[in-house]
Amino acid sequence: MELNLEQIPREKSLSKKDFLKKYFKPQKPVVIENFIEDWPAHSKWNLDYIKELAGEKTVPLYDDRPVKHDEGFNEPHAKMKMKDYIDLLKSKPTKYRIFLWNVLKEVPELQKDFTYPDFGLRLMKGLPMLFFGGSDSHTFMHYDIDLANIFHFHFEGKKQCILFSQSETRYLYKIPHSLITREDIDFDNPDLEKWPALKHAKGHITQLEHGNVLYIPEGYWHHMKYKSPGFSMSLRAIARKPGNFGKAVYNILFMRHFDNLMRRIKGQEWIDWKNEKAVLRTNNLVSKK
């Protein structure tokens, strides 16, 4: 038995009017296949180009090891020069990923290669973020701390994306005081005997290739798996729904600081309690279904 996932709609191109009507207002994901052909990035951006421009930059790397109590919020697991990291990506599969790498701050020249598209939403122009990964590397299932509307532009290689709306959270074994699900769930091939609540979750799936744009509605859970080495850029717009905006403010101003405080006070006991609570809460919600 597999997850209940439907293919995300794909559009060759999409006007601002149609995007707002068909996808933004109902908060549905979409892949736009041909949207950035006029960007220099469409023809220029590949791993070799990034290596040429940013090869000497030292980059933070993350893998799929479970969260530990003594690691800070988004603390990297390793560091490496970008040129060495790209050589690693091209030579063999690796779990190491880069995420939330600020283009404007790290490599301002890349700003010349793209423009901020008009989707009818005000994009946060100070936060274009790059994400890199090698074959079979993946993120944990998570949603973003600010519950933003995300436009995810993919370059080089292939990437699988699985999405769930916030309405499916009750089935996903969410970790309390966190933005992730249980880290030992393989969303690419889940054990539904061990995680039976996932049978009730209804989600979305797609595969991105060079030049594709994925719209991720605000607050959506997402799991990204690189089928081959590549990278993506995310542009974001703040959450517009009052409930989501309120959650974003709570997460940023309170939740993450409370979680870090409890890690310092309770140590690994806090992490273990949260993991156990995720299962108990999910099973309890499902039993009431």
Rank of each mutant, 00 (worst) to 15 (best):
M1Q: 09
L5A: 05
E6Y: 09
E6M: 13
E11Y: 07
K12Q: 12
K12D: 13
S15A: 09
K21E: 13
K21C: 10
P26S: 08
V30M: 03
V30Q: 03
D38Q: 15
S43V: 11
K51P: 00
K51R: 11
E52W: 03
L53Y: 08
T58I: 15
P66S: 11
H69F: 15
H77Y: 05
H77V: 02
S91Y: 05
N102H: 01
G120R: 01
L127H: 12
F132R: 00
H138C: 04
M141F: 13
D144Y: 06
D144C: 06
L147H: 14
L147T: 14
A148P: 08
H152S: 04
H154T: 05
F155I: 04
G157P: 04
G157H: 01
K159R: 11
C161E: 11
C161L: 10
I162H: 03
S165L: 12
Q166M: 10
R170C: 07
Y173V: 02
I175F: 09
L179Q: 14
E183V: 09
I185K: 00
N189F: 09
N189G: 10
W195A: 00
L198Q: 00
H200A: 13
H200P: 07
H200F: 13
H204G: 07
I205E: 11
T206L: 11
Q207F: 09
G211V: 10
N212K: 13
V213C: 15
L214Y: 04
Y215H: 03
I216D: 05
K225R: 15
K227Q: 15
R236A: 02
I238L: 08
K241F: 02
N244S: 08
L253N: 08
M255Y: 01
N260M: 12
G267P: 06
E269T: 11
I271F: 03
I271W: 06
K274G: 09
N275D: 09
N275K: 13
V279F: 09
T282N: 06
S287Y: 10
